[in-house]
Nucleic acid binder design. Sequence first.
DNA 1: TGTTTTTGGTTAAACGTTTTACTTAAAAAT
DNA 2: ATTTTTAAGTAAAACGTTTAACCAAAAACA
Lengths: 333, 333
Amino acid sequence: MHKISIKDVAKKANVSITAVSQILNNKGDRFSAETIKKVLQARDELGYVPNSAARNLKVRHSRLIGIIVPSFRMPFFADIIQSMQDNAPEDVNLVFIGSTADNLQSSIYSLVERGVQALIFGRPIPNRDVVNAFLKKRHIPYLVLDQNADINAQDMVQTNEFTGGSLAASHLLSLGHRDIALILPNDLTDNMRQRRAGFLDTLSAANVTPISVISAALSKHGGLAVVHQLIQSQATAAFILNDEMAIGVLRGLTWQNVKVPEDISIVGYDDTDYAEFVVPSLTTIAQPVAEIGQSALNMILQRLAHPNLPYQTAFFDVKLVIRESTAQLSTDQ
Amino acid sequence: MHKISIKDVAKKANVSITAVSQILNNKGDRFSAETIKKVLQARDELGYVPNSAARNLKVRHSRLIGIIVPSFRMPFFADIIQSMQDNAPEDVNLVFIGSTADNLQSSIYSLVERGVQALIFGRPIPNRDVVNAFLKKRHIPYLVLDQNADINAQDMVQTNEFTGGSLAASHLLSLGHRDIALILPNDLTDNMRQRRAGFLDTLSAANVTPISVISAALSKHGGLAVVHQLIQSQATAAFILNDEMAIGVLRGLTWQNVKVPEDISIVGYDDTDYAEFVVPSLTTIAQPVAEIGQSALNMILQRLAHPNLPYQTAFFDVKLVIRESTAQLSTDQ
DNA sequence: TGTTTTTGGTTAAACGTTTTACTTAAAAAT
DNA sequence: ATTTTTAAGTAAAACGTTTAACCAAAAACA
């Protein structure tokens, strides 16, 4: 029942607890080699593990960073958090939490209670002003991955969403398509609004407007649900703001015996792991996910080190990855 | 810079810190309604958030549970942790960590340092005896999802892997297949060994042995890498121990113009989200992922409440989900 | 009236660290 | 031979809570 504390190792090594603390934290330059050895040995024999609650309490910080994503089940975010974890320095701890809009407030509260020193939002923040006030009051810097944010209120890492949408449009245009559908998730993040804007702008620069705009749930099933409308719209191509939905659409189309890309071209967004593996493989806009994750983490660490520097925003480029789901408009239509 | 502590709210409300503590923890039955109101108001005005490091230090526990999975990027584990988080009681905190075999030891150490009271392993444990000794010494109960474990050393939740393999075999057999390949990940967990055993046993009961056994990396790319060998083996069906690999195989087969299920039937394992969405949709063995996650969490919570009860193991059934990737052996081969 | 109970609190110790300020003995410098 | 410096350590306070033990005043009782 008794948990081994620093006292126990001090007693066993016959030194003060100060000595143990200093030595175990590599601040033991004033101690003799012999004492150091005694302490290390006592530590090992007892299997002492420091209590970080006590440590955090005393030093008044935790090196703990909270990461809030919408869901662990979305490959895009799974990639992000994996890359953060893989690149986190030894001495910082990450805590991931998947949080819907509903319980975002309580997630934040719980993280603050746990002592996070900074937060990274992988999802849009409803009630941004109250969240901002709450966090600012407690001097907890945060960073958001969405574009819907005041550039002077926090750090950001962004990708060039507008270009992404634009790339999709010009690709489809260059293949000769003019009857193009746009498929959106029901709830648009600001990132997605930018994608849409880029897409729409580029289309209209070529004097085309979408033949149809359809919304559905942001999921594979959402994509599935939309194929009937898509087929009826007579579109020869579709841009879908998200790979997961796109995969749903692909699936539905195959079941309806609509051939991709012969009958309709599809382009997705994100370049999720699976984009390469579906049949037909998915043309999509790739974001540098791993870099985004790393960069977000590094920026927030920087912020912790220099709280008063002006806010930064990192910018990443996207690129079009052409696979099998898009093709030249066939003339015999 | 100054962080609001319980002292500040005590001062503001003009009461002792004991009063604040008791009232805020709903143990304030001895206090007058007026005092309670004063305290609550002071708390709200100051925006006081309790410091759980201090609390944990004092009460000597954390209600913190560590979950170790191989990777956030594997849909199977993403589902598991999501279901845990969705079902965790208000007062317990979960910390997820993706850890390879290499850094498992240091992950465990770091979690113990952070004060976890229990651990759930979603991955096999190399060096089980040292891990067991380490954890037992510190009275940290743990639970493993793999089958390679001493039933008397910790709680477990298992699925009927043997039956899973067996189901796959009899399905293929009943479709008339006799030339059946088996595709394995390079590193087999004990769960997978059981799958294999069930599969092989059922095959041999029908007097058939696999026409070929192939190993590759446990990933979509691993599956892809294997299709050449698979085609050369002349198998008319294959059982693949994992959906991700199976999806890779499916992909590769399509590129090689081998038709599934006309030319070859494929059955996977896990019934990952994507199984339903690939083309052709994947026949596979479904595990009740969400229930597994919940059950694991509940069991370990039980264990915390009753440390001395005998170890339990929960058992879940699997089922065969027939989709498009398997079909009757065509006679014209 | 004097005694006991009840009501509504407060005091102070403890949890396991880190860190500042001391101490003491030996070595070096004068 | 005294003083100063250095080397090697220790004592004790503090971080923010919780909780056991205590206390005073008012209410109830005899």
